[in-house]
Amino acid sequence: MIEEVVMRQDIALDDFLPIFISSSLVLVFGGFYVGIYTAVKVKLLKKWTMPIAYIFWMLTAYCLYLMGSLMHVGEFTAKALVVAAIGLFLLPHAVYFMQHQVHEENEH
């Protein structure tokens, strides 16, 4: 499964800055998504802010796509990035679900 073309193409000089910025924003937006989601769930934020969390996830996914295409990633890395995006999507749901269960069991 070696990606033959991993390094075939040079990254264009003008593409470095967008790559660095988009890959940083991946986690910045990802952090906002997860943070807002959790804050709403523990009632630090009002419920109507939830869609904003999902908008941030979409921005994350877009940045991952942008970063990947500017870097000319191959098929395998592209799949790895999709897995990471889905993982990030599920993460706060899973965390909340599990934490909630433990709290339910232990505090009632």
Binding site: M1, I2, G30, V42, L44, L81, A84, L88, H103
Partner: peptide, 29 residues
């Protein structure tokens, strides 16, 4: 190692995000 490194590096931030939410979550609760 390109593939292995790329895949697992892409996943490495997830626990860091998770640790961050956890502190927020526990504090909030």
């Amino acid at each position: 190692w390109w593939e292995i490194g790329a895949l697992f590096s892409a996943l490495e931030p997830l626990p860091l995000v998770a640790m961050f939410i956890h502190v927020l979550y526990d504090w909030g609760k």
